[in-house]
């Protein structure tokens, strides 16, 4: 029972880490840069959805859609303000710039949205259904499903649509992609939008289980980065799987050894795994060329 409940907990959290990590993967694959403040993107998704659905009373579907659209816009802004000016000059100061922008956004939300955590109560999220004799929130089942669905949607987008294939082309060979007439800067900008949409979706999904406040994303963003790296940031399915594995391992450590060891062991595992597999669990080694 302990193990089963831990696995269910881990699956829900892990898929959410996976979604956030997928966001890291998308931008890294296309541009070798990431938004280090991905947690802020997640928080924005939840805050926007709360604002529309609860404060303005919209039905959840348009509220979530609108929130994701705003997230996409935020992704474009991140790339424009905190990544492009540096990446263009070959400087790695985007590392710091995205963090700084995240601080600005977190604090701006603190003063506009409010300082109190708010409950995002959705009727379909509360209640408990028995699974293997354990009470589970419907949302805990929905999150892994939504995670897989979104990863699948990404897969479909990449494999079946023109825009998606253009993005894949940029991933595989930016120069040849330009020769196809693909506007590479726009694709990178689009990748950041997509990345932020994934983070926003994770935020909206987790909000009813959790709560909504300006600081809610920080820890998740960090763990998601660990997951992205563990999975091998170059592999989409790799980061998704790593997310689930990380979530389940974390919950199992808590359940079996006690919460005292959760943080130490999970981060120590990160170091050990990376020392053994320097390109993550599913990442590909870069070919050394002279």
């Amino acid at each position: 029972m302990l193990v089963v409940s831990a696995i269910i907990t881990g699956l829900g959290l892990g898929s959410m880490y996976g979604l956030l990590a997928l966001g890291f993967h998308v931008t890294y694959a296309v541009s070798a840069t990431v938004n280090f403040a991905q947690g802020s993107s997640m928080m924005l998704g939840a805050v926007f959805a709360y604002t529309f659905a609860v404060r303005l009373g919209w039905p959840i579907a348009p509220a979530a859609a609108m929130a994701l659209a705003l997230c996409a816009l935020y992704g474009v802004i991140v790339e424009l303000l905190a990544v492009r000016p540096f990446a263009r000059r070959g400087s790695n100061a985007w590392l710091m710039a995205t963090v700084a922008l995240g601080i600005v956004v977190d604090n701006a939300v603190l003063f506009t949205f409010g300082k109190e955590p708010r409950g995002f109560n959705m009727p379909w999220a509360t209640g408990s259904i028995p699974v293997f004799g354990i009470g589970v929130s419907p949302l805990q089942l929905l999150i892994p499903a939504a995670g897989v669905a979104l990863a699948g949607a990404l897969h479909f987008y990449w494999r079946r649509t023109r825009g998606g294939k253009a993005m894949l082309a940029v991933v595989q060979n930016p120069e040849a992609a330009r020769l196809m007439g693909i506007n590479v800067p726009r694709v990178i900008s689009g990748a950041f939008a997509l990345s932020t949409v994934f983070a926003g979706a994770a935020g909206i999904l987790i909000a009813p289980l959790f709560n909504v406040h300006s600081d809610m994303g920080t820890v998740f963003g960090l763990k998601a980065f660990a997951v992205a790296i563990l999975g091998g940031i170059t592999s989409a399915w790799g980061v998704m799987i790593a997310g689930v594995v990380f979530g389940v391992v974390e919950a199992l450590i808590t359940a079996l050894l006690g919460s005292t060891y959760t943080q130490i062991l999970s981060f120590a595992l990160v170091i050990v795994v990376l020392a053994a597999m320097p390109n993550g669990m599913f990442g590909r080694a870069e070919v050394k060329k002279v």
Partner: peptide, 20 residues
Amino acid sequence: IEKMENNDVDVVPQLTRLKQ
């Protein structure tokens, strides 16, 4: 005695240990 983090979404594992 179980601990939780500020950002723990689900404390079922800790509570299950206490229950058991």
